[in-house]
Amino acid sequence: MNIFDIMGPVMVGPSSSHTAGAVRIGRIARRLLGSQPARADILLHGSFAATGPGHGTDRAIVAGLLGMAPDDPDIPNSLWLAEGVGMAVSIRTGEIRNAHPNTAVLTVTNTEDRTLTVSASSLGGGRVRVNAIDGMEAAFSGEYPTLIIRNEDRPGILSEVTRALGASGANIATVQLYRDRRGGLAVTVIECDEPLDQRLLGELSRLDGVVRCTYLDREED
């Protein structure tokens, strides 16, 4: 663990996992969607469901969806502020099989009717992990510049992607590959050490076999 995981973050209380981590989950969903959600359905599981209201987990996730950082003093007012920007919010609790105790599933829709479902867990100390995007497995923290590429499952695509990254001078920290079935749709998650530029992202999304390329820049707080 990095020393700034031990000391910090600066955050609004009361719980690094149930409040600060919850804000980060909301923020990641917003950034993956790429715009302000017009509506958000939030499912809370486990300890998030059991002690969420007392820890402000609901308000924290909504604050993140509004783009607030974990240290924003307006986090307690987020439900009210969401009304102000016209974001419809519904929050419910439920059981998700085999999920981490602090897990939320967020379904967010923007004004262009693009919908995205993100499952994420809060691991403690404010650190989070995305578990799945649109029902497809993925595991990343959002602490690194992260590429989420949806591609056809056929030979050579990963090598095309890594070649483009290498040519741009980007160093890959981790790579994960998931698919729904052989020859179906795959998700490639690549965490890099340094931020990636727009030109490279454009090149990646134009590669043959790449369906969609989403980029999550590093979170600094």
Partner: peptide
Amino acid sequence: EQNACMGRIVAAPTAGAS
């Protein structure tokens, strides 16, 4: 108490022990 009241603190190492 700042932490319990959703005020701003520094987790060191956690919010509960801030």
